[in-house]
Design a protein around this nucleic acid. Structure first.
Lengths: 184, 184
DNA sequence: TATTGTTATACTCTATAACTATA
DNA sequence: TATAGTTATAGAGTATAACAATA
């Protein structure tokens, strides 16, 4: 091995690798599939999905960003792409004049209708068909719980804005203290 | 809701969302952490890890690509970055003259030593500390099994090379037939 | 002919920070 | 002052295909 394993249980790293890789493999395949079937990246499709879920009410930009792993400016960019394609529309929020509400256009809804079946099928074939229903429920229960806890943590969209203290360079998204000396 | 749910069980989508988001949140945080502590992206660190695991024998480029979610040219690019930083070295493979073996330099090993503890801590705090050991083992067992099955599928590195039939546009990484008509 | 790895190009995306406007 | 969203810019990364060399 040669690499020091800092008192970490091999179980933990195997668990993380399994989660990490399984998720990445499926995401990669889904991205390919969606680019091909509807011409959107997975990231864009997921954004469209979140907006679509909100129906005619639309959804605030920040809420969308928080629901996904996207920064605010990243979201603006991607929603801009979706808007260019005529799939979403942005408008003012009724209650808060700072906010922007995004909502799916008819064309966007059509695209969702066209893309969802293939997406679902792919995830099902890669993931769920290999799991018993019991296992499915078990994994969901466990991970959903973790996810909820993580989501309750500092919102990415609010994370370090406008600051310029230069001090806490970042990376402190979460308690974890690197503790390693940074070379170079 | 407005969005058609094609006879999909809500359980399945919740499971997928849990896996997808949990994995992404932790990966995002790990990326931040690693950039900060050792100046590498998560992708680069994972590559370095895989190479490092192989010790002094080094590891073939294709094998590394297959172990991760990276394309061949993408790996060349990233290993190039690591090489620029003096963290890895590339050399000819003894048995196959087409192959290239990458191995970690002393500096690369130092960097791994510096980065691993923080990485492990982060994953542990975000993930494992929220799971009982039993749950950890359960999830690992289930996902590890899925991962293994997925890995045995067509290798990404071999996937559609040199072809130009223009026909099977891609997206057929996996059985899944989109079945939806592509708009636009 | 198939595989290994690199390269070249164009393009997409991201990081960062500055900026406007409202709460 | 804090929050919502956009913008601008530079740089990083990716997709695609072509390429050379070996099996």
């Amino acid at each position: 091995m040669g690499i020091p394993e800092p008192a970490i249980s091999a179980d933990e790293m195997r668990a993380w690798a399994a989660l990490f890789e399984t998720s990445n493999i499926v995401q990669y395949a889904a991205d390919r599939n969606l680019r091909d079937s509807v011409g959107l990246t997975l990231a864009q499709f997921e954004i469209l999905l979140r907006i679509g879920e909100a129906g005619t009410d639309g959804r605030r930009m920040t809420d969308i960003a928080d629901a996904l792993t996207v920064s605010r400016s990243g979201l603006t960019y991607q929603v801009g792409q979706l808007e260019k394609k005529g799939l979403v529309m942005r408008g003012p929020a009724p209650d808060d004049d700072r906010s922007v509400i995004a909502q799916v256009t008819p064309a966007g809804l059509d695209l969702l209708r066209a893309g969802i079946p293939g997406y679902v099928t792919l995830v099902r074939e890669m993931l769920f068909d290999r799991l018993s229903h019991t296992d499915l429920m078990t994994v969901t229960e466990i991970l959903d719980d973790v996810r909820r806890q993580l989501k309750d943590q500092p919102k990415r969209s609010t994370f370090r804005r406008g600051r310029r203290t230069g001090e806490v360079a970042a990376g402190a998204d979460v308690p974890a203290e690197p503790a390693g000396s940074a070379p170079e």
